[in-house]
Design a protein around this nucleic acid. Structure first.
Lengths: 228, 228
DNA sequence: GCGGCTAATATGTGCAGACATAATAGCCTA
DNA sequence: TAGGCTATTATGTCTGCACATATTAGCCGC
């Protein structure tokens, strides 16, 4: 017996998968489906809206709902705090603050952060450990102009966790790439120079000003995984 | 004037960002908010549900809704078909089928696909081009047992696009990693051996049987980007 | 036949009310 | 005091109705 929007979502997905409704096909209207399943239109709407959000359906007013021809798979990733990530593997998290200085970031960073050239901001370099072994090398530029004072001792509290607890973040973007280890990363992570490393880059903003730019270089073997 | 669930979502987000409601804090109940904004509870529910889905709020029955203390950023990635990805850059997509043979995949692949050891399946090796230059090296194991016959000429039509159009996919998972280029990848992509490459691995299943396992090795410079 | 206006239509969103469900807080008993 | 049961409560979901909005199909005039 079908009832509830999750049942309807499952049934619609089943019909798409067994090709009752092949890619590109127009499916019945919400009203028709509601009548067929014996539920209210709002319930069908909820189910179809979810499937459209997942990229399985394409909906347009008046035009109707059709099965996505080239399903742009929308994968959702959980980007946890590093400590949680390590602990989720059953390992013990630790970190060492390697450097804390003020300076002028390189041009690509200033431009991406939208800072005036020559602005001096805070640089933190941290090595995260899992069970005592190098896990991630973190390089972070922090804009002190938007931070509450006093700043903590970043050797005792991870910058990431202090920020989420004390700064009103707004938006950001994340990028992933693969790069060969530079001399500094190689030395800190204990790998040969040029070793392929998984890189995560994050920019965070308040409504107006940049908060922080982070570059994470993950130790070899790191994988970012998703379920679709 | 606030009305409509998107306005409410924005207002709640604003209060979180300006720390009216700091991380970990309990926010008013749906009923209270509905009264405050002069809307129906369903409207508030829609707004709060969206924010919970984005990882900004945590909701539990009876316990109420609280601002996520460690916001597990949920990033959504669009995983398009390679042709679309190339065309979105304003480049011309092309591809060359390098190899098509039947064989027994290596053990890690058979086990991940859940195939009996020794099963012979189809292997396709393809090089995707953007404006004529190497873009992605694709290695693909295909389970012919679940494919409709006749199989097409994969030199003329990309395996990926033929599959989405002709096979009832069901689920899959995606993983990203960084690896040094092997001899084959280096030769095909025109880079030095050991060059850091961005790797995408995809497994696709019908309800019961594995369909395909793909490994994509992206040419240097590739970035996977997200907006949060 | 062509261009533009209009009416029809499917989805988007809203409301008020209802019942379901999970999880806590507090009570009651041993 | 500890343990378990129960009432309470906030969210989860559903219904039936209504109106808004985008977009298409078709009509109409030229």
């Amino acid at each position: 017996m079908i009832s509830g929007w999750e049942d309807i979502r499952a049934e619609v997905l089943r019909r798409i998968r067994v090709r009752d409704w092949p890619p590109g096909a127009l499916i019945p209207t919400e009203e028709d489906l509601a009548a067929e399943f014996g539920v209210a239109r709002a319930t069908v709407n909820r189910a179809l809206r979810e499937l459209a959000g997942a990229g399985v359906l394409e909906r347009r007013r008046k035009a109707g709902t059709r099965v996505a021809a080239l399903p742009v798979r929308k994968a959702t990733l959980d980007i946890p705090v590093i400590r949680q990530e390590v602990e989720a593997r059953g390992q013990v998290h630790g970190f060492r603050l390697l450097e804390r200085v003020e300076g002028v970031p390189p041009v690509p960073v200033t431009s991406r952060m939208g800072l005036a050239p020559g602005t001096r901001i805070l640089w933190l370099e941290t090595l995260h450990l899992a069970d005592g072994r190098p896990f991630v090398h973190e390089g972070r530029w922090l804009n002190p102009a938007v931070l509450p004072v006093p700043l903590p001792d970043f050797a005792a509290v991870s910058a990431n966790e202090w920020l989420v607890a004390h700064v009103a973040y707004a938006t950001g973007d994340i990028a992933f790439a693969a790069e060969g280890a530079g001399p500094r990363e190689a030395a800190v992570l204990g790998v040969a120079e040029g070793t392929a490393l998984f890189i995560t880059e994050r920019m965070t903003w308040t409504a107006e000003a940049p908060i922080t730019y982070v570059r994470l270089a993950h130790a070899p073997g790191y994988r970012l995984q998703t379920m679709v």
